[in-house]
Structures are given as structure tokens and as C-alpha cells.
Nucleic acid binder design. Structure first.
Lengths: 350, 350
DNA sequence: CTGTTAGCGCGTTCAC
DNA sequence: GTGAACGCGCTAACAG
């Protein structure tokens, strides 16, 4: 193996990185001075000359501070944990992009945890992040109305917070921590009204799991608005909150609501899956059946016909969650973003 | 604030977590014994009785090992870094899901770095991950043929490796490290032949940036196959390797290749963007113009008409990269996955 | 402004 | 088997 890469000008180049004390030695100053020069604490009080000497020595040795040692000495890390249900889902990957961008600005590293929709894994990740002493945890994704799971999670988060960690949620504030939430009910109601305005009267609804709070909020908002207009949906079919959930549930919906003019799914991926299923069944969209969703994931830009939905600023939500999560002053805050109805060609006027 | 969460049975419950030595004290054993009992080093030589006492004490104190301290003492972390161009792009988020799953199995945490297509940021992340002493780094995304940027990156990676870090790429092996690569040339050629078989003779091509190696490999494979059949593309238009790149470049392609029967873009997101642009221009897909892509991102499941493409096992590629990245024995290995042509309705027989 | 000295929490030699 | 002591690399008092 020929030696490659950086080559310190002096002495032996070990397998391991140069340490601060080596830098200090090389610069002929004390450890403390080297530390101050390189880090420049709030009190940037190192003589310009020494400071320069240290920096040069560091460059010469290709010094790279050890974040673990710093974390240890400082008592806190520069890491933020992000827990999502499924990073491959555009909903979450967009949120992740937002969190990542915001974390970047704060010079924080992001540890990604992908639960694959498994509450047990979610719990395990909270513990792992606690071990890493992550400064904050952001939990993205709607909660379920599952007392046991929520209690376990809440206990784990409480333990984490008890030790100085801070937490934010993107979803529902059921856990007593700061939360970025979407005004699901209002958004869904607005969408329902928009569809009514367009002339739709026969609705088939693909709801998520009964206990999924986001699904429930949206469903209630939507049905409430229909109700106010004296309209009752032909059928409401529950399924998983995923693309495949929507895809698989369409057949039942058609059976139970053969007269439906429009199918509304509680999120976009479900709507897309259902739309595909409709096509597979030989239907034409939107002529035979119209479709609408919720979220406005970026994927929709290239879907035909363009899907009517409720726009949520997903990346922004990820961004917003970051300062909330980092907020140490213990206040439980709540930020609500509102959804905006976007009518597109998947729901033409009737 | 009412105290909530875990409550140690004994003494005061500090703001900070219980330490191993507290556990040792609580259990009436030495620090060393506690360490061995909880960790069970290769030499699991702690009496069953003591072991039990320690574990109980740990549970009572709600002990949570400090990963930073462990990393420090052990000399290595349990973290793997993942650098991607854009986590919101389905191509990368799917790879990320694969990496995440594989890392999970190895009990490694994943630090996510999102470069937003900026080489400078990429470099910065390599440094950050080095500071974190991440055990390995996975760089996903095709390289550019940019000597300066590549050299800088290569130097940074070499420094990282010099200090014991290991690296793997998902893309091209231009950096002298282990790589998971797709057989882009062969896949593209197979696609070209499939399109020829379907009766297409007039091709409009949306290539990526000239210096983008993945784009180039695919382009060359495709054109080579056309060539062998005595066919020359009507036009090749370069653009960004993104959805918007494809979307924006379609107009020029139509201008330069008005007779084209099919548009092939070097990746799916570009093809989708272009397809949308075609529709916006009033064309019907695939009747007026057929489309094909490359990658088979999951998004395609719900696109209409279904897009013909070359399937790449993206999640699997992320999975495969993980052991490669972790491989300490210094061998530069290369794994090639092959793409499989998938003909769908976006390219009907002519 | 700069240097000395304690730790941070844990793994790991060494002795016993 | 178990315990005592050292060190990982760095920051943060505390002195000068």
C-alpha cells in the first residue's frame, strides 16, 4: 500500500488523526490556547499571532477535531435525530430535506432513523438517539390512537427530556411536546367545499386506519363539510395510510359506492394508488371517476391528470420543526400550518 | 413542572443521566465489572450473580450508556455517514432506505448529509463525518467529470481513509474506492434495442450534463446501440440531471427534433418532467410522442401512461453499499448491478 | 491574554 | 472472576 492522502510535514504520520495536544506542541503553545484558537469560544481572546501559529500548525498536521471528545467535554453533541416512518415516501423525504437544511444552518448533524412503520422500532430509535446524546429529536409522522404504544413512546421521550434532550413532533401534539401540525380538519373541509362547488355530490372516501389521527382529522373535516351541505358520502373505506393501501382499497370502494363521482383519499399516495387501480380496472380518469388527495407531494407535478389536493408546505414543516426541537426553554409550543386547496384537472367541473 | 418519566428508586435524580459508575456503586461492584456485565466483551466472564445485580441496578437507575464516551474509549463509533445529492429525490430516498435498513442490522446509526447538488457541501460533509469519526461513509450519486472537484473530494476521502475510515460509492468508481455501480451502458443499450424492436426509428434524447458520468455512460450505451442498427438520433439535448432539467429541455428538443417519435431521457425524473412539458404543450402521450427513462423509481407505479424504463434495484444498491463501506480490509471492490428493461405503455409498438 | 489542572463517561490493560 | 488505575481528546474552570 503506497501511502496516500495528506502527509503531515513533520514527524510520523500515524494511523490515527492528529490530536489537539499535538497541534499545541507543534505550535509551541498550551493545550488550552490551541483549543481556544481553533474553537474561538464566545470569548475570542487569543492573540492574533498565536492564533495564527496554532491554525498553521493545525493545517500542517491536518488536524481534525474529534466531535466525540468535544461532545464529551462540552456535555452536549451537535447532533439532531430525525425519526420518520418511511424515508422512501415522498412525504417524509421532503420533510427530511427541510430538517436537513435547517440543521445545516445550525451546524448540526442529522441522524436518520427509519422506523418502517414499526412502533417498536420507533421506541428503539428514541433510545439509540438518547445514547448518542442527540441534542434534540424530531419525530415526523402522524400518531396512532394506540394508548399502549403512545404511553411507551411518551415515557421514553420523557426520559430523554428529563436528561436534557428536547423534542418536537410533526403531526399531532398528543405527546405533550412541541409540535408542528397541519390544520387537517380545516384543509379537508375546504377541499370538500371546493368539490361541492364543482358540482360533485356522490363521494367515495378512502380513509386511513381508524386509529391514525391524521387520517381521522382529515376525514372528520371532510365529512363535516359535506354534512353541512346536506351531503352524505356513499361509502367510507378504511385502509393502510400508504400507496398500496389506497391501491388495494379501491375495488371495495367501487363495490360499496358504485355511483360515486369522485374518490377522495386522505393522502396523496393513497389517491395515486387508487387512481392507478381505477385505471387497471378499465376506468377513465377523471371522466369515469374523479380523484382528490391531500398533501401535495412533489410527485404530483408529473401525474396526469394533475391531482386535486390540499397543499401542505412539507419542506417548510421540516424546517419549522427544527427550532422547535432545539428550543431548550421547555415551553411546549405548537405551530399550525394551514393547507391550501389546489383544484386541478383530476376533478373537472361537473 | 411536575416530575415525570423514569424515577430512580434511590437517591436524587439529576438532570443528567446515570453513569456507569453510579450503576456500579448501586450494584456494589467495581466500574470494570459493571462495564463487562452490561457490555459483555468478547470475554463474558462475569459471574451470573453479579451480572444480574448490575443489570438490575442499571434498570433501576434507568441507565443509558453514553455512546460518545464509548466511542472515545473504544476508539471507534457506531455511525455510518450517508451523503446524497438530494434526499427528496426518490432515487436517493430509496437508496437511503436501503442503507438505513442494512445499517440497522449492523446496529449502526446513519448520519444523513444532503448536499443539494453542491460539490462544496459534499466536501464539507466528508469533513464533518470525519470529525464525527464515522466508521464509514457512503457517497451516493454519480460523479461529475470535474477534475478539480474530484481531486478535492478524493483528497478528503484519502485523508479520511488514512485515519481508518472506510468508504463506498454508489455511482462510478472514479475515486479509487469500493463502488456499487449500475451497468448503465448495457442497460441503456438494451433499452435502445427494445425501442428499435418496437418500431421506433426517430429518437429525441435528453441527456444530462456533459460531465455527469452516469448520464454519459447511459448516453453512450444508448447511442452505440442505435448506431449498430444504423440509426442516428434526431437530436441530443443536454440539461440538468433533474426533473426540472427534463421539463425545461423538452421545448428545445421538439424544436431540434420535430420528427422524433420517442423521447428518451437518461433518468426517470427527467423523463417525467419532459412528459409533463409535452402535455403542457398540448401533445398527447404516447400517441403524439412516446417516452422512456431510466432507473424505475417507485413513483412510476402511479404514472400514466406507465413509463418504459430500465429497472435498477435502488434499495438493494443501498443495501449492498453498506458492507462494502464497512469493509476494513482495504480491498477496493466493485459490485455491478445490471438494469433490466421494462417496456410499458408509454412506448407502444409502432 | 495564556498556561495548569481537572474532569467528561467509559473500556481496558494490569494486578490481585 | 474481580478490582484499581490509566487514558481516549477535549473543554472549562481556575490561576497567573
Amino acid at each position: 500500500m503506497s501511502p496516500r492522502g495528506a502527509r503531515p510535514s513533520s514527524s510520523a504520520s500515524d494511523e490515527r488523526a492528529a490530536t489537539l495536544s499535538q497541534v499545541a506542541h507543534e505550535a509551541g503553545v498550551s493545550l488550552a490556547t490551541a483549543s481556544r484558537a481553533i474553537n474561538g469560544s464566545p470569548d475570542r481572546v487569543v492573540g492574533e499571532d498565536l492564533r495564527r501559529r496554532v491554525l498553521e500548525a493545525a493545517a500542517r498536521l491536518d488536524y481534525s477535531p474529534d466531535a466525540n471528545a468535544q461532545a464529551m467535554a462540552r456535555g452536549r453533541t451537535a447532533t439532531i435525530g430525525l425519526i420518520v416512518h418511511d424515508i422512501a415516501d415522498p412525504y417524509f423525504s421532503t420533510i427530511a430535506a427541510g430538517v436537513s437544511a435547517a440543521a445545516d444552518e445550525e451546524h448540526l448533524a442529522v441522524t436518520l432513523a427509519n422506523t418502517q412503520h414499526d412502533p417498536a422500532r420507533e421506541l428503539a430509535f428514541v433510545r439509540t438517539l438518547q445514547q448518542q446524546r442527540a441534542r434534540a429529536i424530531i419525530l415526523a409522522g402522524g400518531r396512532q390512537d394506540d394508548a399502549r404504544a403512545n404511553e411507551a413512546l411518551q415515557a421514553a421521550l420523557a426520559g430523554y427530556q428529563h436528561r436534557g434532550g428536547t423534542v418536537a413532533l410533526i403531526g399531532q401534539p398528543v405527546l405533550g411536546v412541541s409540535t408542528v401540525r397541519a390544520d387537517n380538519g380545516r384543509g379537508a373541509a375546504a377541499l370538500a367545499n371546493a368539490l361541492l362547488d364543482l358540482g360533485y355530490r356522490r363521494f367515495g372516501i378512502l380513509s386511513g386506519p381508524d386509529r391514525h389521527l391524521t387520517a381521522r382529522e382529515r376525514l372528520e373535516g371532510f365529512i363535516g363539510a359535506l354534512d353541512a351541505a346536506g351531503v352524505t358520502p356513499d361509502a367510507v373505506v378504511a385502509s393502510a395510510f400508504t400507496r398500496d393501501g389506497g391501491h388495494g382499497a379501491l375495488a371495495e370502494l367501487r363495490e360499496r359506492a358504485p355511483e360515486a363521482e369522485v374518490v377522495w383519499a386522505v393522502n396523496d399516495v393513497m389517491a395515486l394508488g387508487a387512481m392507478t387501480a381505477a385505471r387497471e380496472a378499465g376506468l377513465s380518469v377523471p371522466d369515469d371517476l374523479a380523484f382528490a388527495g391531500f398533501d401535495d407531494i412533489s410527485t404530483l407535478r408529473d401525474v396526469a391528470p394533475p391531482l386535486t389536493t390540499v397543499h401542505l408546505p412539507l419542506e417548510e414543516m421540516g424546517r419549522l420543526a427544527t427550532p422547535l426541537a432545539l428550543d431548550v426553554d421547555g415551553g411546549v409550543r405548537e405551530v399550525t400550518v394551514s393547507g391550501e386547496v389546489v383544484v386541478r384537472a383530476s376533478t373537472p367541473r361537473r
